[in-house]
């Protein structure tokens, strides 16, 4: 696999001016996605995953403040905006609301090609038809004439994925692409993403709160907590030996289909700190069973290991 980076994010910060002071949604996040690679981002709601994706694409609302560097295929900062929808595409969480309700599917798909590729309307519709068939929609002609509300959730997500693929992007950012779907449809959509990555050598940044969703697809997993990266590792290494206590807790919470059925599902008690809260120490300290005195005083710095792993913890689990 080639190791040329397609997306590099360096010390990205996203903040909002709120009533109770600055709300820091993303704090100092750095990550990298290589060409053709699938990187997973995992974290509970509010950990800054979606804000990170929006910041990468330059889609933050106008009242957001963004610092840091986002490089796409070597081009600097705002070049991302110019390739948005063409070389970088994004699929959003909720397919129920992500399609324009008053436009037919055909119109919403074709306009992407008409704008980016300057092709004619009929040619764009033909390409859209082919792409719908490619993502497994059985009657694409019918689907093109439909309005979004006439389709099921799974079909809508396929339409959104097909739309994002029309310009053959080098990177697909998928923000919780399966969260709003039934479990069976979820598996189909994940399978579709895996197939598209293989066939098109397209890099995927897969964001989910669900470790299981990311596990099957991502080669590398980035764990986010309270707006920052707390651990990053190759997927198998992460599951075999998590170093950060939060990652370990996430893995412990995932149900094990082979083990005995527990009387109670394992949960992680407590809540992450609010985005306006200021504290000197580690954001996970209040929920961490390994916390030592130092964790309250000092925010742990990122430790990078030579096998591509990194974590930010004063009292990591042993490898």
């Amino acid at each position: 696999m080639s190791r040329e980076p397609i997306l590099e994010v360096e010390r990205l910060r996203v903040a909002y001016a709120g009533r109770g002071g600055q709300v820091e949604a993303v704090r100092d996040v750095s990550l990298r996605v290589d060409a053709g690679e699938c990187v997973g981002i995992v974290g509970e709601s509010g950990s800054g995953k979606t804000q990170l994706c929006l910041a990468v694409l330059g889609l933050l609302p106008p009242n957001a403040r963004r610092d840091g560097v986002v490089r796409f295929a070597g081009a600097p900062g705002d070049a991302v905006r110019a390739v948005r929808g063409e070389r970088i595409a994004m699929v959003f969480q909720d397919p129920q609301t992500a399609l324009t309700p008053h436009l037919r599917i055909g119109t919403q798909m074709a306009e992407v090609l008409v704008h980016h590729r300057r092709v004619s309307g009929p040619a764009a519709r033909e390409a859209a038809r082919a792409m719908l068939a490619h993502v497994g929609i059985s009657d694409p002609d019918r689907c093109l004439r439909r309005y979004p509300h006439e389709l099921s959730g799974g079909m809508r997500q396929r339409v959104l994925i097909a739309t994002s693929l029309l310009c053959e992007p080098q990177l697909l950012i998928a923000d919780e692409p399966t969260t709003a779907l039934d479990v069976t449809v979820q598996a189909q959509v994940l399978e579709l993403l895996a197939r598209l990555r293989r066939e098109r050598r397209m890099a995927i940044l897969l964001v989910s709160h669900d470790l299981a969703v990311v596990a099957g697809l991502a080669a590398r997993i980035v764990v986010m907590y309270a707006g920052r990266v707390v651990e990053e590792a190759p997927a198998d290494a992460l599951f075999r030996g998590p170093r950060h206590p939060y990652t370990a807790a996430l893995i412990a919470c995932a149900p094990n289909p082979d083990g005995p059925i527990p009387a109670r599902m394992a949960t992680l008690p407590g809540q992450p700190p609010g985005a306006t809260e200021r504290f000197p120490g580690c954001p996970f300290v209040s929920r961490c069973d390994r916390a030592v005195e130092r964790c309250r005083r000092e925010d742990p710095a990122m430790v990078a290991l030579d096998d591509g792993r990194r974590f930010a913890c004063h009292a990591p689990l042993s490898a």
Partner: peptide
Amino acid sequence: YVRTAFAKG
């Protein structure tokens, strides 16, 4: 859906 439209460039 407007966000989607922005994401489509």
